[in-house]
Every structure is written in C-alpha cells, then in structure tokens.
Amino acid sequence: MGHSSRVLGHYDKPMWDSIARKEWALQYCPESARFRYPPSPICPDSLSMNYEWRPIKGTGEILSWAIFHRKYFDDFPPPYNTIAVRLDEGPIVVSNLVGPEPEGDWIGRRVQVVYAEHDGVTIPKMKLV
C-alpha cells in the first residue's frame, strides 16, 4: 500500500515552495503568454526556456470529478473525492473538494484554492465559491 507522495522532478521544487508559502505559483512563458502545468523545462508553444514563477489566483471551474471507493494509499481512507479544475489561468489541475459538496452535477461549479496540511506538507485543495 504505502503513503502518497509528491513527484519532485527537476522543475517541481519551486512550485511546491510557493505552495508552502500559500502563494501557489506556476511557470509563465512571456513569449507565448501562457501558464503551464506540471512544471517542465520548456514552453510547449513557443519553445522558449525563459519563464517566470507567477502566482495564480487560485480560482477555476470544475471540469469533472470522481469518487474513490477503494483504498490505494494508507493516508487516503475511502470514500474521498477528486476533482479536475480548469484554472482561470488556463492549466488543468487535479485536487480535492473540501467543505460542502454540490448536490447533483459538480461540473461547471466555481472553486477557490484553500491550503491544507497533510503529513507535514502543504497541499492546495479547493472549496466551492
């Protein structure tokens, strides 16, 4: 079984540092004017390797959701929800919806990031706006 763990690739650390400061930032390419996620070495649109870490607003819209009924991680007892969110900056992120859950269809509901502590790591989650 085992615990969940983050992927900490060569470009991930600055993002997780920003999350720890509760100021989630993503790579922004000035040439294509696009944000990207997950972090990567180059802009897939402009092929520019120049980027800045720009804080995101943390707002977006639920694209879809799925409820886990099986246990895959020691630290995630089922049932629990997962959501895919289209950030207002463009990229799609996966998260969990905390707090009240919508009745019926979740898709299209607006959400806002909230920061939660999980085993000593700050994780960005979402709540309904």
């Binding site: 763990s5 992927v7 959701w65 886990f68 991680f73 997962t82 996966v94």
Partner: peptide
C-alpha cells in the same frame, strides 16, 4: 498522488463523468 488520485481506472472514471 498528493490528492489521492491514482490508478488508470480513475483516469477513465473522471473521463466518463465528463
């Protein structure tokens, strides 16, 4: 994984929901 999202089944579950 930091959000508990794992397994190929989940990738298709969230796709089916949409």
């Amino acid at each position: 994984a930091p959000w508990g999202f794992t397994s190929q089944g989940a990738l298709y579950a969230i796709m089916l929901r949409r």
